[in-house]
Design a protein around this nucleic acid. Structure first.
Lengths: 153, 153
DNA sequence: TTCATTGCAAATTATTTGCATTTGA
DNA sequence: TCAAATGCAAATAATTTGCAATGAA
């Protein structure tokens, strides 16, 4: 749906910085845009792209993710499973800027999203109390999902 | 001050599980208790202990941290600098259970603690809305600390 | 004594880097 | 044309694991 938009934005941002628009960069962003629910590791993205474009290198995927991160087109999360994961940037997620957090089930490993805006208030507190200027945050909850809870009874 | 208490608790917990009380296990916990402000990587703990006990192996430090984590005697945080860090468990931090979060300065890398209880409410919301049972959380804020902010003006 | 624990070295795994080749502007 | 970007292979770095030796109960 808005995949062309995402790609257009990347093109604009690349040109702004004097960088080149390459197939690989478009493909990495596209892979993330097309899988906005999942949290993909660099390797996952690499395998996915290879299906249509077998010549891409893993190092390019890593370099591209780094670049997209700096451009704030993707978000990075660490689910403590030994590799860093990426998702399409929250800028694309809707009209209103919602913060989305992750609920990580310690039993089955599933990761659920949770939308909430309560953190905005906390960020104001922090700025007032400490003078620290908050730009971004990462919030994870660990526990047991509904299904695992009911199974364990 | 309460270092003996921490060690006693470890001894009790080890015996409960039928595990052995070793110098190495006591030393790892002690190193963390004695440095409750800092966030130490396994390597840091290893180097620290080696000053007094040069024969300890890095693998033992890793194995011990794993064990202490399972026993909930230490907390683990990931500051996105390529290695996992540990601090003495929040159980020891005071009488009232406060949640403590981390403010990470993107300019100088400094990590500041921030105490807050707002998350309790959010955890209740989550349980109501999704049925997910929250056991623990990790909250990080990224931005610029007071000092770096004033320097960049 | 005896099995858990340790230290060491080798293995593993995610990520980064050097460099010759390719490619977009 | 030509610097930027790529693919590959080698390098790096944190963590884990196999195993023989050691030590706590």
């Amino acid at each position: 749906m808005k995949e062309e938009k995402v790609q257009e934005l990347l093109k604009v941002k690349l040109r702004e910085k004097g960088l080149k628009v390459t197939q690989q960069r478009l493909l990495v962003l596209q892979a993330l845009a097309a899988n906005s629910g999942s949290h993909m590791a660099a390797e996952d993205i690499y395998e996915l792209i290879r299906e249509d474009y077998p010549d891409i290198g893993l190092a390019t995927v890593y370099r591209t993710l780094q670049l997209l991160l700096e451009m704030q087109l993707v978000d990075r999360i660490n689910l403590d499973d030994g590799c860093v994961r990426y998702e399409i940037g929250h800028l694309f997620e809707g009209d209103t800027k919602h913060n989305h957090h992750h609920l990580i089930c310690r039993t089955c490993g599933k990761v659920l999203p949770f939308e909430d805006d309560l953190l905005e208030e906390l960020e104001r507190h922090i700025e007032e109390d400490t003078g620290f200027h908050v730009l971004d945050h990462e919030l994870k909850f660990y526990g047991q999902c509904k299904e695992c809870l009911s199974k364990s009874k």
